[in-house]
């Protein structure tokens, strides 16, 4: 599912992000794969936009995300806010270690519930 690496806007080589969206038990499951940064962020933001055809309850499965920087943090916070206003919520699952680090730095886990894996997040 991962695409060929391309040269991004800064001339940097990074793996583009692919995002899978599915609906399980009336919960939207968003599973990005790759790196979340300035250039790929918009794709993730699109997938997390509150939409008519998707329940506003979202589990974001980050187990295939190798890297996330402050751009990703902003996206998650905005999503958290938007989903809350739409009567839903955001949960994070499967933070890999680089992602966990930035989540803890910012204290994101005090704002958005984090779970070790998707199943836990769905079941909670």
């Amino acid at each position: 599912m991962a695409e060929e690496p391309v040269t991004g806007a800064e001339g940097a080589l990074h793996v583009p992000l692919s995002v899978d969206v599915s609906i399980v038990d009336d919960i939207t499951v968003v599973s990005p794969a790759g790196e979340i940064d300035y250039s790929s962020g918009s794709r993730l933001r699109e997938a997390l936009t509150v939409a008519e055809d998707r329940p506003p309850r979202v589990v974001l499965d980050l187990s295939h995300v190798a890297f996330m920087d402050s751009n990703g943090i902003t996206i998650l916070l905005l999503t958290h806010k938007a989903l809350g206003e739409a009567g839903g919520w955001l949960r994070i699952a499967g933070c890999t270690s680089p992602v966990a680090r930035v989540v803890q730095l910012v204290g994101l886990d005090t704002v958005i519930p984090c779970f070790p894996c998707r199943q836990d997040a769905l079941g909670a």
Binding site: L77, K81, V106, T110, V111
Partner: peptide, 13 residues
């Protein structure tokens, strides 16, 4: 030191 991002919750740790 611990401390969370501001502007989200009323009582951040």
């Amino acid at each position: 030191s611990d401390g969370s991002i501001l502007g989200i919750m009323p009582d951040p740790p």
